[in-house]
Design a protein around this nucleic acid. Structure first.
Lengths: 146, 146
DNA sequence: AATAAAACCTCTAGTCACTGTAGGTTCAAG
DNA sequence: CTTGAACCTACAGTGACTAGAGGTTTTATT
């Protein structure tokens, strides 16, 4: 009878104790049994589910996506088209982010290369930041989750 | 004599009215003069500063970075080494994020390519999410600001 | 068995960079 | 002079955690 404490579960899987409690709060991890003193005691099923969540997060899936993916795993005999769609949509998002970062990278490189390392008054970095017309690319707005 | 309303300033520069008020709140934009009826009236200097902020944000600089950059522009006769350092550090951050996104991209591609489009029970996407050992790369944790 | 330290508990607030809403006031056009 | 758009302040919410306060339980050592 594996009865993991929350600290053990966290250490085993490389996350913080608070993160596990958070996933329980938002309903991603089912509430585990409790000890006589009200401390959480996890089974291997919990550990599996936690690993799924953590790994999906590492691959950039949102909590909302993961919620859906977990729901789909509870329907093992259904076709996996929905899973694939979710993953494909996420892949597209990742690619959009990469494109934006690439545009940023190019502009940052460009401005650093043009800087003469003199005074701030004549600094190319400052000039470019002050005027988008000096940019070579159309870089969109910044955005979250890399 | 140019006396821009907040709505005009926002429209001219492609941001939201609230964003401008927010930048004032946190001390990035100086409080402008007010009309008799207490509405904000901006000068071209405000517009310039706002564009600097917005453009820096587009290039992925944090508000903290921008605060520093703005402080440096107020010292035009100083050497621009600090500016360059900030930009270089940011470039490094951008590259780290790109590398992480690239790892994600590879794994997502791989799992989608291996999926047989059968049932969830045997879906490669689900399998990989459940077990990091099935990954080809060491992809670190996700993270913010793309 | 007693003690002390480490780990656990709940609850709340903070992070970042905004965005949205409520409830009220002012401005510009007709 | 009226209407409606734009403005005002103040506060709550977003995502995905993270950190802290203040108190309880477990575990290890003596």
């Amino acid at each position: 009878m594996s009865a993991l404490s929350i600290g053990r579960l966290a250490a085993d899987n490389g996350c913080k104790v608070q993160t596990i409690r958070y996933y329980e709060d938002i309903g991603l991890l089912p509430p585990p049994a409790r000890s006589d003193g009200n401390q959480r005691r996890y089974t291997r099923a919990h550990a599996r589910r936690l690993r799924f969540i953590l790994h999906s997060r590492e691959l950039g899936f949102s909590i909302a996506d993961i919620r859906q993916l977990l729901a789909l795993t509870d329907q093992p005999q259904q076709p996996c088209a929905e899973v694939d769609e979710l993953a494909a949509a996420h892949l597209a998002t990742v690619r959009r982010r990469m494109a934006r970062l690439q545009a940023m990278e190019q502009e940052l490189e460009r401005m650093l290369n043009h800087c003469q390392h003199g005074e701030v008054r004549e600094c190319r970095v400052i000039d470019v930041l002050a005027d988008h017309a000096l940019c070579a690319t159309e870089h969109g707005p910044a955005q979250a989750e890399g």
